[in-house]
């Protein structure tokens, strides 16, 4: 791996990453909060259930990622799902059953699922 030795190199690297991310934009992105408390509340169980459900249903257009605290401790485990071309939606209280439901209903059919957490914040984008 070559190092980033200048500001220009950093910018080039960023462009390359952004391009890669853009190429994925037609896929579903499932982001599972995996901070200590999310894991304690069953975040990994939710992740594994969704991965399993994706495999069982033979879905190929789903990417998974892990992230840190989504700040909604009261609703752990929390999962954010971004359908192609749509705004990300955060679901709370995702136990195993809800996790599978999210894949079969929301991801596969775009059907609304209960437990949506409204966005109550504005986020600084650098």
């Amino acid at each position: 791996m070559s190092t980033i030795a200048s500001l220009d190199a950093l910018r080039a690297k960023r462009e390359e990453i952004l391009a890669r991310q853009k190429a994925r934009a037609n896929k579903v992105l499932i982001n599972v909060s995996l901070a200590t408390c999310s894991i304690a509340a069953g975040g990994k169980v939710a992740l594994e259930a969704m991965q399993d459900e994706v495999a069982v249903n033979g879905l190929t257009n789903v990417d998974f990622m892990q992230s840190g605290c989504m700040t909604f401790c009261f609703a752990e485990p929390t999962v954010e799902i971004t359908l192609p071309g749509k705004e990300p939606v955060v679901f709370g209280g995702v136990d195993e059953a809800k996790a599978r439901e999210l894949v079969t209903e929301y991801v596969m059919n775009g059907e609304p699922v209960e437990g949506i957490i409204p966005v109550t914040y504005q986020r600084v984008i650098l």
Binding site: Q66, Y121, L126
Partner: peptide, 19 residues
Amino acid sequence: TQIKQLRIATRNCGFIDPE
């Protein structure tokens, strides 16, 4: 009107893969 929060310090928490 319900947006009371502004996330600066926690701007990336939950949005990026920390690893």
